[in-house]
Every structure is written in structure tokens, then in C-alpha cells.
Design a binder for these strands. Sequence first.
DNA 1: GCTAGTTGTATTTTT
DNA 2: TACAACTAGC
Length: 822
Amino acid sequence: MLILDPDDPAGWREAPAAVPGTPAASGNRFTEGLNPEQREAVEYRGQALLIVAGAGSGKTRVLTHRIAGLIDSREAWPSQILAITFTNKAAAEMRERVESLLGEGASGMWISTFHSACVRILRREAEAIGLSSTFTIYDSADTRTVLKRIIKELDADTMGFTPASAQSKISKLKNELSDVETYARNANMNDPQEAMFLEIFRQYTRRLRAASALDFDDLIAETVYLFRAFPNVASLYQRRFRHILVDEYQDTNHAQYSLIREFTQPVPAERVAEMSEHGFNVRGITDASGGIPGASLTVVGDSDQSIYAFRGADIRNISEFERDFPGAKVVLLEQNYRSTQNILSAANAVISNNFDRKDKKLWTAVGDGEKITGYTGYTAHDEAQFVADEIEALHRAGVAYRDMAVFYRTNAQTRALEEIFVRSALPYRVVGGTKFYERAEIKDAMAYLISVANPLDELALRRILNTPKRGIGPATETALSGFAEANGLSFREAMRSADALGLGPKVTGAIMALARVLDEAAAMLVPSSAGVAAGTNEGASKVSDVLVFLLEKSGLIDALRNSRDPQDETRAENVDELVAQTRDFDRDNPQATLVDFLTQVSLVAAADELDDASGTVSLMTLHTAKGLEYHAVFLTGLEEGLLPHQMSASEPGGPAEERRLFYVGITRARQRLYISLAMSRAQFGEVAVAMPSRYLQEIPEDLVDWKQSPGMATSRGGTRPRALNARPGQGGAWGTRDRDLERFSVTASAKPKAEWANRVTGTVRDNGDLTLEAGDRIRHVDFGEGRVSQVTGEGTKRIAHVSFDTAGQKKLLIKIAPIEKL
DNA sequence: GCTAGTTGTATTTTT
DNA sequence: TACAACTAGC
């Protein structure tokens, strides 16, 4: 999926002599069909441009046309462009679109995420900051493991430190570009809490250094430090990139902001002269003083879609852009090309409740469209059944599954949705969530590769030390690390000389054997002498071959295959899938190294996994949904405590950010928007009463057609559990006034149709080999009786198409549906 | 050093 | 619920 940028380091010193073009020369070819504001954003030439782009206002179009225009008019070579996007997928798409606009490849362009761009720079310049160019990138789980060890060793848990709390604090500091020393200077050492945290931070930094590893936040921060500490290195990039474009600017944090500032600094004349002497071509890019002026900066963003404050995103970066870059031009894009007016009106109404924002109203020329459909389920399963039914109805009406998406606030909400979707034989895919690369067996296999690529990475080594089981326990591990420390060796070196430790012969043999396997794998990666001479990877073994070698020689794959744990069968299959992925990687990137593969894996984002060609409904969190659009969108779990989330209440700006999240969700929909909630939701395995989200009231009532409103669901019938009759408590945002509930009763559609049949439970049954055929009558736990009209599929995937007497048409996966034949 | 069983505890969003 | 950490017994 991710394509390695074809930028070629050999061309690094070549002359990208720009032919300065006149703005008008960018031609009409790239402004045709654009509205006046879009056109202005594409054509403007100046130091700084802020494009305030409302949702669906065609910002990707503007960005791609702007880049294509710059290249086509010869104002810039592709290699002088640096475009930062939020995901790798967006980057790949942007590259594709630019290339198709130009009708040719645009190699040398850097279009990537902040993190990918930084890794690329850091690997190239690693030496300068005393890092191995094969440094490992630690993900949050790795960070957590390291912190867990540190906290245990320091007994910091007695002071209330947890890996999670330390992790988020360290992350916040790094996003503010505060390193250990900076923190130490300002810390109040009389406060034992603070002193302890400093020690944790210090240890953490030390260990990452020793392992030649960087965490996600380091990638950005270290690049900034690199540029600041080595102006001559920074100049290389300042000279090269003449046009910097940043998408989703509202979600940049301080470190990213600082990085952009570094990129756009001018290069003073004396350094330009120096560079020129060293053979760097600066022709055509110097100004009258002989220096290189700062690169032009284009940022695109929408403060209403800022949803990453928890990750340090600072909304001031965009709101104070004009102050930061004096003379900046601002272009406002308000015409929406995505959604119907009803959807936009709802979005506008909701977001206008956020005070302290620049007023901005999205509008469209496409017309009102259909009303928003609302539904209140009794349980999460009931809600999920509504979603499944509506998806099926849309599908029958001709909407492809891939054009529909279900959004939710927390990953935990997928469970009920998945259960119902499986039962309903709906093709779906969960985007993000527990990712493939987070599975234990995959992390194990990856740890082998990492140990080979970066021998200093102790975390990876410790992970594989006893995986598969080799009889090397914690005692041996401690002995090894003690030996390493006492002799000034790395953990890996200690393993090689394990025979000097006086351990048992079996354990010693196991350690030495593992060390040997790793050494042999490392030898496979050395390029041939011809390759070394040419600076290529010629002669090195392919990633897939190294992986297969490691899996076999280490015994990992055999251990999984021969295990009697039935789950290990799936694990072995996952490992095989990893091998298949490395084969794909080798095929797609013949020149790439093992480190390239590891980098790519470290930096995949949830949205990168999206496969446009798949014929499935997509399920994802609201955060992942940013930047995407679908014909039909289902916003689920619109309850107090979920959206806004409980945890956001205590955070400053929390409720406003949650509202933006809701806004982002609404504006993903092109034609149809569905909003739903459940009156009760299982948490802790206990059922708790749920209150409608405060944000629901903010949607004008005439825009929503409630098939079952919150009012109806509380005021009707006596068959539901008592808990549901409970009055909303004091302080509940939904209020205690009856008017609030009445509002929904009044707007509720007058047709009390099949909704009562939809009181779906989580019941699952194994029907084994129940055979059904068209014409059979069945009884379903939730839907009552019905007649089978058709049976499709094979084996465990047989699907019954059933017309229920009261609940309508449904598809059921026969094996697990709670049904019986009559 | 390994395994199974038990107890305890935490549950937001992500590059 | 569900998973991590701890304990007991091999």
C-alpha cells in the first residue's frame, strides 16, 4: 500500500534549478472547474497561505492542483516540494492525483506524514546526533513495556505512577519539545513526586538511547533538535524544499509547528556560499543578498475539525497563523461539495454551539436531500440490528457496501456491532482497532527482525529470548543483563559470551544458539561488495527470506504449529500472513532494506488499511473517520458518557472537542446520515442506563426523522427493565425536564411499525448442521416467526434469507443465529 | 521454569 | 468483560 518515495539520494546534489515562472503561467488547466476561492488558493503565490477549508470543500483538490500548477509552470521541480498529510494513504492518493494531473511521474516529491518524513531525515542524518541509522521505532506498547520495567525497578508504583500515566506525561513533554534536561531545570526537586517522575523520565531516555530507539514523539522532536543543533544540516533541507504544504494543520502540535518553522527558515548568505563551495547547486534560488529565502508555506485546516488536542494538537497554530507568518494570505472555502443541505444544516447547528470560534457556514448547491434518520435501541444489540437492517435496505436499493460506514467513539463498541453483523451475514471490516501488527505472535516475529536490524535493541532481544520457550527464565535474563552491565557489553554481546556466565549447559546452549541464528541472519543482510561500492542493497537477502530463516531456525513457527493450544493454529496462520506481506513488500520495493520494511510497519495508521476496492461496510472510530467520506454514514452510541466521553468531562476544552468529533462524523456523509443510540449499554459486563447525548438536542428537530426517539423509548410500555424507567439524575445534561423528552415524542414518526420486533438481544446459538431450505418456517428469538425464502452460501457460511411475519426481511447466518426450525 | 487457576483492576480517541 | 498480575503446585 505504502509506496516508498522514489527520491534518489544520488540526485541530492544535482541542480534543481528552478525557472521562476509568473503566477499567471500556472495556466487554466489547473483552475478549470474550480470556484473563485479555490482558484485563488491554487494560484496565490507568496510566502504564506492559510486555506481555511470547511469539511468537504475540496481542499485535497486545491492542494493537488496547487502542486501540479507549481510543477507544470516550472516554478518548482518536484523535488522542491514537501507535502505533509495526515496518513500514508492520503499521501499516496495525493501523489497519484498530482501525477495524473501532470500526466507524468513526479519523482523526488516528498509527500508523506510528519512521522515518515522525519524518519527519513533522521535515518539519513543519524550519525550527527549519535544514533544508529538502523534505529528502532518504539510504538506505544513498547514504550509502555519499558516504562513498566522502570517503574517496577524504582518502586514508583507506590507513589501512584503507572506506565500509562508516565507515558502520557512524557509524551506531552516531548510534544512541547521539553527533554529531560529542560524538565530537570524547571523541576521542583523538593516534591518527591516530581523528583521521581524526573528519574523515570531520565531512565526512559537513557534506555531508549542505549537501545538506539526513538518513540513516536521523538521522531518529530529529534528532527527539530537536529535542525537546531546542526544549522548546516538544516540548510540542506531548507535549500531543497522551496514549497512546504501541510494538510490538517489544526491537528499539529507544538513540535510539529516548530518543525515547520525550521523548514521555512531562510539560509543566510555565508552558509549558502559555504554550501556552494561544497558542490551544492544554489543557482536560481538565492536572493539579492546571496542567501536563500525561506520556503513558501501553505497550510490547510479547519479548526472545527480539531480532534487531537489529547495528543498535544494546539488549535492556536491555526488561529494565530496570521500572527506567526506576517503578510499571510487567508482563503476561506465554505462551499461544500460533499453533503446534502440537511446534513450540513445539522452540522452547522451543532458546531455553532462551540463558542470562541470563527463563524463559518457550510453551504451546498445540491439541495436538501433526505432527512436524517434517528433510532433509539433498547440495548447496544438492538441499535446494531437497526444499523444492520438499514444497511441491508440501502444495499437492496443499490448502495454498495463499501459506500457505507459505521462510526463510534470507542473501540469497545465494535463488539455488539460485530456480533449482529456476523449474524446478519453483512460483509464488514473493522478499520484500526486491534491491528494485525499488535498481535503477540506478530510482535514476536517482528522482534526477531528488529533484533537483526538493530542489535542494540534490548527490548526486542528480551522479547525473543524465551519465545519460543527455551527454558530461559527471568533469573537467566537478569544474569545476562548484569553481566552485560558489569563488562560494558550490549545485551547481544553478552548473549554471545553466555558460556562465561557459568549457567547450566542447557540454558547456555540455548542462548548461544539464538545468538548464532541472529548473527547468521545479520550476515544475510550484508550487500555484496559490488553493492557496497555502488551504495545499493545489491546482494543482500530479501526481507522475506530473512524472516523465513529466522522463523525456522528459532523454532518459533514449529512451536506454534506443534502446539496443542487450538489458538496457536490461528497464530501460525497470522505469522504466515506476515511472511506473505514481506514477500509483497520485496516484490513492490526491490531496492528496499529490512530497515525500510520495519519503518513502514511502524508507521502504518489505521486509515492506511482501508481498501477502497473491498466490498465491505467499514467500521471505525470517529477519529479514524477524519478525512473520509461515504454515501451513507451511521453515527452510533450517541449517549452521554460515550459522546461526550466520560473521560473528556474533566479535561479543559473536552466537551467542545467532543462536539467537534460529532461534527466530523456528521460531515463525512454525502447522502444519508443515521444517528442512533441505546437506552442501556453494557459496561463492566453490567448493564447501565444510558442517557441521550446532549449534542442530539443541538440538531434542529425538523431535520431528523426518528424511527424510535429517546422519548418513545422511555415513555412506552411496561415490558422493559425497571432501570430504564429511572429518571435522568441531577446534572445529567439531558436534563430532568419533561420537555426534553417530549421534544422527541412530538417529532417521532406516527407509524409505530416493526420497531418493537427489533428488541434484539445478544443471544448466540450454535446450530451445528441445521439444514434449511426455501419454504421452511422458523422461529427467531428476537424476530419471531418467518419463512425462509432462499438459502445461499456454503458450509458454516450458509445464509438464510427470511421474511419475518412482523420484523420484515432479514439475512441470517444459519450456524449462529438464534433460530429453530418449526 | 512452567502451567493453571485465581484474584484484582481498569476501560478514550492515535501517529 | 477481559486481561494482567500474582500464587500454588508440579
